[in-house]
Amino acid sequence: MNWLVRGLNSSIGTKYLMAVTGLLLLLFVITHMVGNLQIYLGPEVFNGYAEMMQGLGTLLWAMRLGLLLILLVHVRCAVKLTAEAKEARPVPYAMKRSVAASYASRTMFMTGMIVLAFIVFHILHFTTGTFHADLYAEAHEGSHPDMYSMFVKSFHHAPTAIAYMTAMVLVGIHLSHGVSSLFQSMGFVRPKYREMIRVTGLGITGAIVAGNISMPLMCIMNIVEVPGVSS
């Protein structure tokens, strides 16, 4: 097993782990978004979906733990790569220009850290109910939790909606480099696919940003509303 640890700890191994965990996180983000987009199908569907997820019980926890583990590996690799890069150039340039590197590619660590903070915030919001505790309590009053109302009401709160939308822009920046980069890191490249991978990466990123931003946006614009409650 020593060979595996050593191999994964090498520069390319670390990047490989980064790519694999990044890919899994990407798949989660897509699934998560698809689930949430059911908000447009009305309270019954959405609450049904929420209840189904809750009903998974142990499986849900297994998934949560798995996700946490994947996220920790991803973050750990990021910290390692960033620290190594810093060490690799102890004397910085007085003047440094990037010729081709995108803004996203140069700021992966920063955008990643902000997104990480957002994830914590997001869990405090919808999972533990620490943030918007009143809405969380209200949603859990009945025999069936009304996550739909909590969702919509939270985003009627403009600062929350803006925070979410900003976070999604950062996720977008992160993914605009991350998605195509993970193919390169995993070594799935052929010259003729290079452009295709780049365009696909941007397409997926665009879809995720658009889908996720649409929800708080629709709420704040009162296009999605809680039935019977006018704001």
Binding site: E84, A85, E87, A88
Partner: peptide
């Protein structure tokens, strides 16, 4: 002690 590649393409 070279750093790792993060595919920036510079």
């Amino acid at each position: 002690t070279f750093g790792a590649c993060t595919n920036t393409s510079d």
